[in-house]
């Protein structure tokens, strides 16, 4: 029997790795991977708490919903990345700054 705090510690570590990727990476795909890590950390928490919720099953249901939402988000984000590459010839988020004032 694994204590629930250990699930949460792992998910906290994963979340912070994702946060670091989002803040510092210079490549839009790696930023996207960072966002996926953060979503997966949240899903791990959902699932860990869902272990104690047999009747309503809310944790597992919403973990499933979050996975599907993340997949939809990835599809849209990758389409946007491809368009950005077409215009700027680069997917470095710091170089696509023509909207800056």
């Amino acid at each position: 029997m694994i204590p629930i705090a250990h699930f949460m510690l792992i998910s906290a570590g994963l979340f912070c790795i994702g946060l670091y990727a989002v803040l510092t990476r210079r490549n839009a795909i790696q930023v996207l991977i960072g966002i996926e890590f953060m979503i997966n950390a949240a899903v791990l928490n959902f699932v860990a708490f869902g272990k104690y919720d047999k009747i309503a099953g809310g944790g597992q249901m919403f973990a499933l919903f979050a996975i599907v939402l993340a997949a939809a988000g990835v599809a849209v984000a990758l389409a946007i990345i491809l368009n950005v590459y077409k215009y700027f010839k680069s997917i470095d988020p710091t170089k696509t700054d023509t909207l800056k004032d």
């Binding site: 792992i10 899903v43 699932v47 869902g50 272990k51 944790g59 597992q60 973990a63 499933l64 996975i67």
Partner: peptide
């Protein structure tokens, strides 16, 4: 991560992952 979901007894979520 899918293996960790199995430890939380969420086999369907692990498969979906």
């Amino acid at each position: 991560l899918a293996a960790l979901y199995l430890f939380a007894l969420a086999d369907f979520i692990a498969l979906a992952q």
